[in-house]
Amino acid sequence: MARFTDKVAIITGSSNGIGRATAVLLATDGAKVTITGRDAARLEETRQAILKAGISATNVNSVVADVTTAEGQDLLISSTLDKFGKINILINNAGANIPDSQGQTRTKCSIENLTKMFQLNLQSVVEMVQKVRPHLAKTRGEIVNISSIGAGPAAQPASPYYSSAKAALDQYSRCAAIDLISEGIRINVVQPGFVSTGFSTAARGLSADESVKFYDLMGSLPHCIPAGYCGQPDHLASVIAFLVDRKVSEYIVGQTIIADGGSSLVIGCHAPRQ
C-alpha cells in the first residue's frame, strides 16, 4: 500500500517549483491532493504533471485562488471537503520575495512592501492553520510550513523584509506546534536554501536562461553551496513527504529541517553587494 493512501493534502503555492514537485510526489504515493495558485495556466501544468504520473483526475482538486484572501482560503478548504470529505495534510508552501513597487532595495524598501511580505509569508499561513485546525484535529493531521534559510541566523541584507517574515514564520510554527500537538496535530518547518525554481531569480528580473545560469553558478561555488550543485524541487519534496509521513517521523514536533546543500554552514553568498 502506498504510504499516503486515504490521505488528503492541501498544498499551497503548487503551480510551480517545490509545491508542484510535492503535489506530484504525494499524489503518486497515494494521496488525494488540492493544488492551488493564482496563475491558472501554470496550475494546469501541475495538474497535467500529476495526470501524466498515472494519477486519476478524481484524486486532484485544482483551485485557482489567492491564499492571502479570506475568500481564497475558504474556497481551498470548502472545495477540498466537498470533493474528498476530510483534510489530513496542510503544506503551507506559498511564499515570495516580493519586489518593491517603487524599485527600492534592501532596507530602503517601502512599508507597503513590508506589509505585503508579511501578509503572504506569515499571515496567510496563520490564517490557513486557524481555519484548517478543526479538520486536522479530526484526522490527527500534519502541517509543514515552508520557510527559508533566509530566516537566519545569518543576516540577509539584500532581503530584510522577506527574511524577517520567514523568521517570524519559524517562531510562529514552534509556538503553534506546542499548542496543537495536544490535539494530535503535528507542525514542522522546512528551510530550503537555493533551489532551482526561478524563485531566487524572479526578484532580479532574470530570464529563464539567465536563471539557469544563476543556479548553475551558485552550485559551482563552494562558499555558496558546498554540496557542489543547486537543489531541485524534488529534493525538497522528499523532505516534506518525510515530515508528513507519521509512520516515520511521528516523534518530530515543532522542528526545522534545513535542506540547503550546506549553504547555511558557510553562508557567504549574500556578502557581495549586487
Results as ranks from 00 to 15, higher is better:
residue 1 M to T: 14
residue 11 I to G: 05
residue 13 G to Q: 11
residue 17 G to T: 07
residue 22 T to C: 06
residue 28 T to Y: 00
residue 28 T to S: 10
residue 31 A to P: 02
residue 35 I to M: 04
residue 38 R to M: 02
residue 41 A to L: 04
residue 44 E to L: 00
residue 44 E to P: 00
residue 47 R to G: 10
residue 49 A to V: 07
residue 49 A to H: 06
residue 49 A to G: 07
residue 51 L to F: 04
residue 51 L to H: 03
residue 53 A to N: 04
residue 54 G to H: 09
residue 54 G to N: 08
residue 54 G to F: 03
residue 56 S to P: 09
residue 63 V to Q: 08
residue 68 T to V: 11
residue 77 I to L: 15
residue 92 N to R: 04
residue 102 Q to S: 13
residue 104 Q to L: 15
residue 111 I to E: 04
residue 112 E to N: 07
residue 122 L to C: 07
residue 122 L to D: 02
residue 124 S to A: 15
residue 124 S to K: 12
residue 155 A to T: 13
residue 163 S to E: 00
residue 167 A to C: 03
residue 170 D to C: 11
residue 171 Q to D: 02
residue 175 C to P: 00
residue 179 D to G: 07
residue 182 S to M: 10
residue 201 T to W: 01
residue 202 A to W: 06
residue 205 G to R: 08
residue 207 S to H: 05
residue 208 A to E: 09
residue 209 D to L: 07
residue 211 S to T: 15
residue 217 L to V: 03
residue 221 L to V: 11
residue 222 P to L: 01
residue 226 P to R: 04
residue 229 Y to L: 04
residue 229 Y to I: 06
residue 229 Y to Q: 12
residue 236 L to H: 06
residue 236 L to V: 15
residue 237 A to V: 14
residue 243 L to T: 04
residue 255 Q to R: 15
residue 258 I to S: 14
residue 258 I to G: 09
residue 260 D to M: 12
residue 261 G to A: 04
residue 273 R to W: 13
residue 274 Q to V: 15
